[in-house]
Amino acid sequence: SVNPMAYEAQFFGFSPQTCVLRVYIAFQDYLFDMMLVVESVILKKLDAFPDSKLSPLQIRKCTEKFFAFMKEHFNKLFSNLEKVLLQLVLNIPPNLLLPEDKVHQQYPYSREQFQALQDEVQELQRQYRAEASAGQALRAELEEQKVVQAELEKILQWFAGLESICREHGTSNVKESFTFLTQNSKKLQDVLKDVEKKRK
């Protein structure tokens, strides 16, 4: 048919035309089958009248005549049936939106809008991944800082240790002590020279 009634097929799970065809076939097949049964019953009844001179061919002609009449009449009836079924029973009114398609009513997105939304989601994903790796880099730097800080504090402790050794031995200010020591040594030298001179 011109109108594939795809939306109806989405709802019913089969096309309305298929359903109508099934109904048509149901009528046609049973009409045909029943005619064959009628004919075989009559032929069987005729066995009881051997001198009836009625041949199976004659009976066949009668069957065909009655079947043709019924079939033609049925086809006329069926065209109305088909119209009613397709237009009133198996059809979805144009104003009706199936539940699974409600989303199209709520979000009537054009192709461009949809693309823009997709692009933005991708951009957000990229940004999130970048932020996540930036967070990792920052955490890694914090770890590095712990190590470096520990090293630097160790060096400061070493200096502090050095200085406290000096303090323990009375040379809190190494420079002064050294100068003092040098002067003392100089004095000692002078005294020594003096003593030498006197001795000579």
Partner: peptide
């Protein structure tokens, strides 16, 4: 990747910690 994050500036100004440690070696 970092250059387009909220902390790009911090990340791109990361000091060279190895160099800092090397300097202490010199001290």
């Amino acid at each position: 990747d970092y250059l387009q994050t909220s902390q790009a500036e911090v990340l791109s100004s990361k000091p060279n910690y190895q160099q800092i440690l090397d300097e202490q070696g010199e001290v």
